[in-house]
Design a protein around this nucleic acid. Structure first.
Lengths: 152, 152
DNA sequence: TCAAACTTTGACGTTAACGGTAAATTCGGT
DNA sequence: ACCGAATTTACCGTTAACGTCAAAGTTTGA
């Protein structure tokens, strides 16, 4: 499984291109143990395999799933305050202005919901992958138990 | 709505107690614009309202939703590699060891899935709150339009 | 064999999100 | 008026997750 003649090796530049990560980030991931230290050329240049690229793409997905910095949270909550903005001088403004504010509030809410849905979807995909794995393990376990019980 | 006689004011210490955040963190959130600068006593002590506490709890929820540091991602991926670990010397080990490894892999997968489910649930709650808001706005808009069309 | 392009390590810089501490005020009770 | 507890601002420290830059070494193609 390791000595596959078909394996193409890439240098860090190409990997960076393909993954959209910087070379620094790739090395950093290796440093932090997220990526297994790749093989090297004689002179020390790193050589990455397709597997490595896939792994990097997984890492990327997961970091994006991270989301929500304090800044983003502020934006979310600020959008929530469109509510009080709406209510503010509600009685003192004319209907067309009211309409405008309402539309704005609706826009903001919809945008937030879309953002949340996106994150939920990503998490759902992640969950599906794990569930699939889990099923495979369970099947294996069953198989094992059957063999054993048949032997006794 | 502002000059409510019933409003109880708390100092930062009590708020910290109630929210489980540190005073430092609370001030930091104010500094970063996440929390509106509270009213002050004559001498400058901050006075918080119930609303402020609620807001802080929202912020807390959202920051927890953040999850996934690189360390956690590594754990996730490492758990994923239980897969290759499993496969490693599969043929050279005896059935009881196989069973043990399988059980371990299953445990790990289940744990990951629970974690993901928890995050999904939190996001779901957040989504529900936004959806509710959105509905209210839409209802208001309808109301507004009806009034207007009746007037013309 | 030589230059241009690429890569390596190392070191320092930066931003976010706080933690901790100190020195000075302020508050609440007596 | 006074004391102890709580709070204020200010500033320095820290960790994570990279960015940036420099000096030196490596590859490759002509």
């Amino acid at each position: 499984m390791e000595g596959n003649g078909k394996t193409r090796y890439m240098q860090i530049g190409e990997v960076a291109q393909r993954t959209g990560l910087t070379q620094r980030t790739i090395r950093y991931y290796e440093e932090r143990g997220l990526l297994r230290p790749p093989t090297r050329m004689e002179g020390g240049f790193r050589l990455y395999s397709e597997e490595d690229v896939q792994r990097l793409e997984q890492i990327k997905q997961l970091t994006q799933l991270l989301g929500f910095s304090l800044n983003e949270i502020r934006q979310i909550l600020d959008a929530a305050e469109v509510k009080s903005q709406l209510r503010a001088d509600w009685d003192k403004i004319d209907p067309s202005e009211r309409r405008k504010r309402l539309l704005h509030a609706i826009e903001a809410s919809e945008s937030q919901i879309r953002l949340i849905d996106h994150k939920i979807e990503q998490l759902g995909q992640l969950r599906a992958r794990w569930a699939e794995r889990l099923e495979r393990y369970r099947a294996l376990l069953l198989e094992l138990d059957q063999v054993e019980s048949a032997a006794t």
